[in-house]
């Protein structure tokens, strides 16, 4: 559906994107993840024909973004970082305007505005002047604008930024829903967001692709072996060394309180935990907490983007 080949973009002498390659299949939600200034917005602007690439090729729905720019734009819905709203207009007249420049005939326009407003929860706000709307509702109007012409491809630049937690969940669910009939690229620097919505993640750092994978795989690679955090109350006679012997990789991190101990256990196989569990119960230990430790995307991200630096420092 979307393809970028060797896209490079310079702003004067600053290289914002370097040899960017990307392929997105139909119906996929792809997350672009990276720190501020990594090149997420630049990549999106190039795809939406707002900015030209310095070199490289890209196509959307089979149309080249340079040669068939109009065809590409017909098939795209784009929500920029700042929703492109006219503050003096009402939601209704704004969406009507967007429908007009997106070539929707009158009847279809009316029907789509009704449908989109209902879907995004703007129904009660259709006559409100955009200026009087809160940040969350403006973001919704921005999203409504991008969806209005039922585009094949949706490009959303930080769609949940500035929303409150409830709204974030609503918008996320909406995006997941939309993936049924749209191909979606969204960018974010909020890590849980990608793990909740995206099937595949592209991690960008300094204009280059640092990693492309599914969220699950990335998490697995970052943690390596299964790890548990255990808090338990052990009898005083308890021999700490026996645990270590039982599980050679177990690490006793620190004693949290006088009568409870907190461990971080790293094992080769999940099954190793069964033996350990038996030993601990036999020794009359009382479990307070057993938590499997999963890598967050934060870990993944840090590992990928700062991995090399760390090696150098070490």
């Amino acid at each position: 559906m979307i393809e970028m080949q060797n896209i490079t973009k310079y702003y004067d002498n600053f290289r914002a994107l370097n040899n960017f390659n990307l392929k997105v299949e139909k119906g996929e939600i792809l997350g672009l993840l990276g720190p501020n200034g990594a090149g997420k917005t630049t990549a999106m602007r190039i795809l939406t024909c707002f900015l030209p690439a310095s070199s490289g090729k890209a196509s959307v729905a089979g149309f080249d973004i340079f040669d068939d720019s109009v065809e590409v734009r017909r098939r795209l819905g784009y929500l920029p970082e700042t929703p492109p709203l006219y503050p003096e207009m009402s939601v209704n007249s704004y969406l009507n305007f967007v429908g007009e420049i997106r070539e929707l005939p009158f009847g279809v326009r009316k029907q789509r505005i009704g449908y989109v407003c209902e879907r995004i929860g703007l129904d009660a706000y259709r006559d409100r002047i955009i200026n009087t709307l809160s940040k969350g509702y403006r973001q919704r109007v921005g999203l409504a604008q991008a969806l209005l012409h039922n585009p094949e491809v949706l490009i959303l630049d930080e769609p949940t930024v500035g929303l409150d937690p409830n709204q974030i969940i609503e918008i996320r669910n909406l995006i997941k829903d939309l993936a049924q009939d749209h191909t979606i690229i969204l960018s974010t620097h909020i890590l849980p967001e990608v793990s909740m919505t995206c099937g595949r993640v592209v991690i960008i750092n300094e204009g280059e692709i640092a990693a492309v994978d599914s969220v699950k795989n990335l998490e697995k690679n970052a943690t390596g072996r299964p790890t548990w955090k255990i808090i338990l109350k052990a009898p005083e006679s308890f021999d700490w060394q026996s645990i270590v012997n039982k599980a050679p990789d177990a690490q006793i991190n620190d004693l949290v309180q006088a009568d409870t101990s907190e461990f971080k256990l790293r094992l080769n196989k999940s099954e190793d935990f069964d033996d350990l569990f038996k030993v601990l119960t036999k020794e009359n230990c009382v479990f307070r907490e057993i938590t499997p430790i999963k890598a967050t995307l934060e870990d993944v991200f840090l590992k990928i983007t700062h991995g090399e630096e760390r090696k150098e420092n070490a």
């Binding site: 024909c49 707002f50 065809e71 017909r74 795209l76 920029p80 492109p84 709203l85 420049i101």
Partner: peptide
């Protein structure tokens, strides 16, 4: 200034 130019230039309008 208000970045609405992004809407216009990414719509199928010349």
């Amino acid at each position: 200034k208000s970045r609405t130019i992004e809407l216009l230039l990414t719509s199928p309008i010349s």
